[in-house]
Design a protein around this nucleic acid. Structure first.
Lengths: 225, 225
DNA sequence: TTTGGTATTCTCGTATACGAGTATACAGAT
DNA sequence: ATCTGTATACTCGTATACGAGAATACCAAA
């Protein structure tokens, strides 16, 4: 499991506490699948792995539990949360609901700065090849569109769903064809936003999610066999 | 601060861990206002208070942070999360979005058991005088209406928003008039659900939230002066 | 009097240690 | 051979201890 130790090294931002560092590394390991769903997360094992005591590891597990990435059973330990088709459907239905609302609210504010920024992110996405950073930029693009919605809680929830979806998203991102299709939809959304066409923007967003969701469900179904 | 020690005693369910117990007591203390917004939550002080070490207290603070009830600043300690008008508006806008969707999805399933249960809860609410238990039953009623929505994540999110709203709700619940008006709206919602009238049910739900939100904002505004 | 720097104290983050509960393996009985 | 009970080992929850960083108070200098 020495691979785990190297994953977090690439992050440029210095973690404020040891627990934050452990959290970031574990989150990444779960997202990439290095830690498979159902895998047991033993505190002292992880502590030895990271060269810290069990306390920061415990803290990290609590954070990840709150994010829905691990399941903690008192006195029985923690495991990586399961991945299944039902969860995908639920997650994407939720994202559609939350992000459509945020998009509507944001568009009413008509802030051109956010759209300019989003356009810049789209161009970066065109050049990006690394799956992890692509996901990061993808999140950045979406949040830019919602930034002006005026509801902090809504934005936090959207971010949380992104984090939960990340481990699923990476599956389809390895498919280059999906990334290109995704970018087409991004451009359509941005165009509709610049035009101030709320209905078109939301419908593109919806299609964007439906596409991703079916792509994922198809993959999961093929994986079953 | 000895009052804190007695609050949790009324709970019938035995906490599984010390941290769970501390979490429950602190949550209640924050909801009732015993711990005012902005109040510092010092780990060793709380530990002495509850007769435990700082570790369960730390765990509890992490849980409450995830619930949005406390804000933790690394190496600087935790404080009870602030309460303000902007947050109320955000919270209720969110609840409206989430619960309207859950209600729509649930009604499509047409499960009479849930509605029968909800009707029973309404009757219990008529007899309940204690503000804390009234809030509990209120949550129970709402969740009964959404139970069949088929989206576990959505339900969890709704519960989380209820928890976050609890400390606000208790303010208006002390007003008997509000409780009666609220019950009228509950009955209207349930009736619409039984009729299978989705539009009416959602519009009653919306009005229910708008009512509560304005009642709260009015109270906050009067409090400002 | 005000401002800047330093020292002290307080709180948190982390490490280590211990006790309790759970799972597992083995042995005995049916 | 299978099932059950007991003993052992393992993991977690909690307590205590220590070190680091931040806030504050105090003193000196302008």
């Amino acid at each position: 499991m020495d691979r785990l130790g190297t994953i977090g090294k690439s992050r440029s931002v210095r973690p404020q506490t040891a627990a934050d560092g452990v959290t970031a590394i574990l989150r990444e390991a779960i997202a990439t699948g290095t830690l498979a769903p159902g895998a047991a997360l033993r505190q002292d094992e992880l502590a030895r792995e990271f060269g810290v005591s069990r306390m920061p590891v415990r803290d990290a597990l609590r954070y990840l539990e709150a994010e829905g990435l691990v399941a903690i059973h008192p006195t029985r330990g923690a495991v990586v949360a399961a991945m299944n088709a039902a969860d995908i459907a639920e997650l994407y239905a939720l994202r559609e609901l939350l992000e459509a609302e945020a998009l509507r609210l944001s568009m009413q504010k008509q802030n051109p700065d956010s759209l300019r920024y989003a356009a810049g992110v789209i161009e970066q996405l065109d050049r990006e090849t690394d799956v992890g950073r692509w996901g990061q930029l993808n999140r950045e693009f979406h949040l830019a569109l919602y930034r002006d919605c005026g509801n902090r809680r809504l934005l936090d929830l959207i971010e949380a769903q992104h984090t939960a979806a990340d481990r699923y998203v990476r599956i389809v991102l390895s498919n280059l064809d999906y990334r290109e299709r995704s970018q087409d939809e991004h451009r359509s959304m941005l165009f509709a936003c610049m035009q101030g066409d709320e209905k078109a923007a939301v419908s593109h967003l919806t299609r964007h999610f439906r596409d991703a969701c079916t792509a994922l469900l198809d993959y999961m179904a093929s994986r079953e066999r």
